[in-house]
């Protein structure tokens, strides 16, 4: 597969702050690459550097195997931090400005507005838009000349649940067209839901990267309790598919190996005459996973 973006020891220093520290990454064509990290971990700075608006202090990057130019920029659609438009212009006029810059066909404007569900609002000025609409307009702008790569910085930041769902749905639809997407987010859940690959950043340093399945564990955690915990613990020792368990005050947390579910556990407990008073399936806390990753 072709490499879309290659970062080589990319670094940025703001005064004494090392915002990005020798970051080396490779984004392959067709992947949905998540750049995951807490606020201030250097995600936006990294995107800013490869988008030519922040000058790297050190290191280099290549787009499609060559250095950045007008030609490579036209193959990438990007939004950085916030949607950036003229508040007094209408959605359509704003996209006309973008189309000029990208030398995109102006006939695509209405098609893109329809795609992001703003077709009926094309004559509304930008300042009258809700945050979700602004974000969607930014997506329309990024997609205007049908780029191969889409780069999104916290695309669901500040949106309400419906807005988040709409934007995620849009991203998945765009990805289905075979585009490469680079997505920066501080939301593990988002990266896990949307991305195929992930790089974890903290304080500008790369903590982990690879396929999402390898980096972020998707195992569920079970929480059970019963009148008497002792027999439960004894049984858990003997069940081969229980990978680990630990007792809290009056409940037990455990994880099962792949392919087994809470049903199996419940059946085996009942077969042994143990009646559970509580059986709760809980996703392993993403925050906990993230802390594990960043503390490695």
């Amino acid at each position: 597969m072709a490499t879309v973006l290659y970062l080589d020891e990319l670094s940025k220093k703001f005064g004494s702050l090392q915002a990005v520290d020798r970051l080396t990454l490779q984004v392959e064509a067709g992947s949905i690459y998540g750049l995951l990290g807490p606020n201030g971990s250097g995600k936006t700075t990294t995107l800013g550097m490869v988008l030519d608006v922040i000058r790297p202090s050190n290191g280099s990057f290549l787009w499609f195997g060559r250095s950045i130019s007008k030609e490579t920029k036209q193959r990438v659609g990007a939004l950085l931090e916030t949607p950036n438009f003229y508040p007094y212009l209408t959605a359509e006029a704003n996209l006309q400005v973008v189309a000029d810059t990208k030398q995109a066909d102006h006939r695509h404007i209405n098609k893109m507005l329809d795609m992001v569900g703003l077709g009926t609002r094309s004559h509304t000025t930008y300042k009258g838009f809700s945050l979700g609409m602004k974000q969607r307009l930014a997506l329309a702008a990024a997609m205007l000349n049908d780029p191969e790569v889409l780069m999104l910085d916290e695309p669901t930041n500040g949106l309400d649940p419906q807005g988040i769902a709409e934007v995620r749905d849009l991203i998945t639809r765009i990805a289905a067209q075979g585009k490469t997407i680079l997505l920066a987010s501080h939301l593990l859940d988002e990266v896990e839901k949307v991305c195929t690959h992930v790089a974890v950043l903290q304080s500008g340093k790369l903590k982990a990267n690879g396929a999402v399945g390898d980096i972020l564990s998707t195992q569920d955690q079970l929480l059970i309790s019963a009148e008497e915990l002792a027999p439960v613990l004894q049984l858990l020792e003997r069940l081969p598919y229980v990978t680990q368990f630990a007792q809290d005050k009056n409940s037990i947390r455990l994880t099962l190996s792949e392919g087994y579910t809470s049903t199996d556990l419940n059946r085996d407990m009942f077969a042994q005459g143990i009646v559970l008073s509580q059986l709760l399936v809980r996703r392993k806390s993403l925050e906990a996973q993230f802390l594990e990753l960043t503390q490695k």
Binding site: A78, N84, T101
Partner: peptide, 18 residues
């Protein structure tokens, strides 16, 4: 200065303007 406060200068450079 509008282009700075709306960050549209930045967006134009991202979009391919030098």
């Amino acid at each position: 200065t509008d282009e700075y406060s709306y960050r549209t200068l930045r967006q134009q450079v991202i979009d391919g303007r030098s």
